[in-house]
């Protein structure tokens, strides 16, 4: 799986790492139980400080996407906790996206079509 990190944009690097790993888990690029690289190794690959990657891993762990063990390192969680709900942060983000779509003149049906498209891409 390839991480694509954009520097100089508003999204912090740790957040970008976190987002892309979540995307990878969702799309199946990262399988359940798959070993993730060590903090040091990934930091060296991207060319960032180890604290940045460490923060990304801690965020993923707190959100329940990965588990970290002392001897075995970080792994994708075998079975995700299915809350079947959007988190508050994601709901707010979705509200923002929908607001901007409305302001751009997008109809509801068109918006849902885009959502379906993206969902299908992630699923495939």
């Amino acid at each position: 799986m390839i991480l694509r990190i954009e520097e100089g944009i508003d999204i912090p690097i740790y957040q970008q790492i976190r987002n892309q790993i979540v995307y990878g888990i969702s799309s199946g690029e990262l399988a359940a139980g798959e070993q993730l690289p060590t903090v040091r190794a990934l930091a060296a690959e991207i060319g960032v400080n180890v604290m940045t990657v460490s923060k990304a891993y801690q965020t993923l762990k707190a959100e329940g996407y990965i588990v970290t063990e002392r001897k075995r390192g970080a792994r994708v969680r075998e079975k995700m906790t299915e809350s079947k709900r959007l988190s508050l942060v994601n709901r707010r983000e979705l509200e923002r996206i929908i607001s901007e779509a409305r302001l751009s003149g997008m109809k509801r049906a068109d918006f849902i079509q885009v959502v379906d498209q993206i969902y299908a891409e992630v699923e495939s």
Partner: peptide, 14 residues
């Protein structure tokens, strides 16, 4: 464009 860095997660350190 903004600087983009690619990193291969699967191969990191391996």
């Amino acid at each position: 464009r903004p600087q983009i860095v690619y990193a291969d997660l699967t191969n990191s350190g391996r």
